[in-house]
Simulated assay, not measured.
Amino acid sequence: MRVSIDSDLCIGSGQCALTSPSVFDTDDDGFGVVRPGQEDGRDPMVKEAVRACPVQAITLDAE
């Protein structure tokens, strides 16, 4: 699985970083980013972070 955040959709609510801090962080402007090396989406909380995003900016795709 591959996780990504659509920066055009992200509103910076921070739900991803709160739900799965080992995978997600926020940039200097407060918008969500995937931590380097965590793009594989293996953390079990990634699916919960996808659900928690209020604007569905996070995608989890099969590779």
Results as ranks from 00 to 15, higher is better:
Q15V: 03
G30E: 03
S4Q: 13
A62R: 14
V55C: 13
C53T: 08
S7N: 11
A52H: 05
V50Y: 08
R35W: 05
T26H: 03
E48W: 10
D8Y: 06
T59G: 11
I5P: 00
C10I: 03
V55Y: 12
T26N: 06
D40V: 05
A52S: 15
D40L: 11
G41T: 09
D40W: 05
D43E: 15
S7P: 06
G12W: 00
L9N: 08
V33A: 05
M45R: 07
Q56D: 15
T26Y: 06
D27R: 02
G32H: 01
L18C: 04
D28L: 09
D61Q: 15
R35G: 03
M45S: 14
M45F: 14
E63Q: 13
R2D: 07
T59M: 12
L18M: 12
R51H: 14
A49D: 03
G41I: 07
C10K: 01
Q15F: 11
V55Q: 07
G41P: 04
F24K: 00
E48A: 15
E39C: 07
D43S: 14
R51V: 14
S20C: 15
C53W: 02
T26D: 05
G41M: 07
E48N: 12
D25T: 04
G12Y: 02
F24M: 04
V46K: 00
R42I: 03
V3M: 02
A57W: 01
E63I: 13
G14T: 09
G37P: 04
S4T: 10
G14R: 01
G41S: 13
G37A: 11
M1R: 14
R2M: 11
I58M: 06
V34S: 01
V3P: 00
L18N: 11
P21E: 07
V3E: 01
G12I: 02
C53P: 04
L9W: 04
C16R: 00
D27P: 02
D25Q: 05
V50C: 08
T19F: 02
D6S: 12
V55M: 09
G37Q: 07
Q38E: 15
L9Q: 10
V33P: 00
D28R: 11
G32R: 00
G41Y: 07
R35H: 10
R42D: 14
Q38C: 12
P21Q: 09
E48D: 15
Q56I: 07
C53A: 14
S4N: 09
L9F: 10
S13Y: 07
L60W: 15
M1H: 12
Q15Y: 08
C16F: 06
R2F: 11
T19Q: 05
M45K: 14
D6Y: 08
L9Y: 10
T59Q: 12
S4G: 13
A17I: 00
V3Q: 01
D6M: 05
S22H: 04
P36M: 12
P54R: 06
D25N: 08
A57G: 09
V50H: 12
P36C: 06
G14E: 04
V34R: 00
D29Q: 10
L18Y: 11
V33G: 03
V23K: 00
P44K: 10
D27I: 02
